[in-house]
């Protein structure tokens, strides 16, 4: 009965939802704000990756809010799981093959994550993606070694410093450029590693912040396994 009602509701919802989208043209060029971004990204922000220039420069304030949401989620998760009885994790390590491979791969995964967020303005990638890659490296170590512990003091220091860097860059733009998060550094040559003004600085800060926050989330989850 409940299944039939659910399928009926979803059928009606899906029909109207799909009929809206099927009337939209698919795969055609659209004029609008996207066109402006594509044509002016290099001259206005110096970043060749248009998605990065939108996320960090044109919609930088939105990204600050997004980073805040992620911070609140990781803090909130810590608060929700705060007084759950922490059971000691199973002492047995993973097999020697898994342990050896993860010891070799752990620094390489961290390096890949750092590469992805340092080159955020040149290649596909950026702070959020690089931070997520770093957190997967830490997850690999958590699964291979039962005694592997994340240093919470270090993680919260990294997280606070990264957030502070973001806000400081924004406020410096307010002082020197006239508005919050304005690009006050020279833009440089497009496609150079050091170019695009403040965009790499902000994305590196975001990368450190996201990596630290996701590691804290994984640590909170793992410690409540029973």
């Amino acid at each position: 009965m409940r299944k039939a009602v659910a399928i009926l509701l979803l059928g009606i919802f899906g029909y109207y939802f799909a009929s809206i989208f099927l009337s939209l043209p698919f795969g055609e060029k659209r004029e609008g704000v996207g066109k402006h971004y594509l044509e002016n990204t290099i001259s206005e922000t110096g970043s060749v990756n248009t998605v990065t220039s939108i996320v960090v420069s044109y919609r930088g304030f939105d990204t600050l809010g997004e980073v805040t949401v992620l911070f609140l989620a990781s803090t909130g998760l810590g608060a929700i799981l705060f007084d759950v009885r922490r059971k000691k994790r199973n002492e047995q390590n993973a097999s020697p093959i898994v342990r050896t491979t993860s010891t070799v791969f752990y620094p390489m995964i961290i390096l890949l994550g750092a590469y992805v967020f340092v080159h955020g303005h040149l290649t596909p990638g950026g702070g959020f993606q690089g931070g997520a890659i770093i957190a997967t490296g830490v997850l690999l170590m958590f699964m291979a070694y039962r005694k592997f512990e994340a240093n919470h003091t270090l993680l919260s220091v990294i997280e606070s410093l990264a957030g502070l860097t973001f806000v400081t860059v924004g406020l410096t733009g307010l002082i020197y450029g006239g508005s919050f998060l304005v690009n006050f550094l020279p833009l440089g040559t497009p496609n150079d590693l050091v170019s695009a003004g403040v965009i790499p600085i902000i994305y590196i800060a975001v990368g450190f912040k996201v990596g630290a926050e996701l590691t804290v989330v994984l640590d909170d989850m793992l410690k409540t396994i029973r």
Binding site: V33, G34, V69, L70, L72, G76, V84, G126, M221
Partner: peptide, 28 residues
């Protein structure tokens, strides 16, 4: 069009936060 891509970048992060908090509530 780069605008939907950057909006999805935001949405993925928010979705991750929602999933993490929901799983925490399920644990409780």
């Amino acid at each position: 069009d780069p605008v939907p891509q950057s909006l999805v970048l935001t949405a993925i992060v928010i979705g991750l936060a929602v999933t993490a908090v929901a799983l925490g509530l399920v644990i409780r």
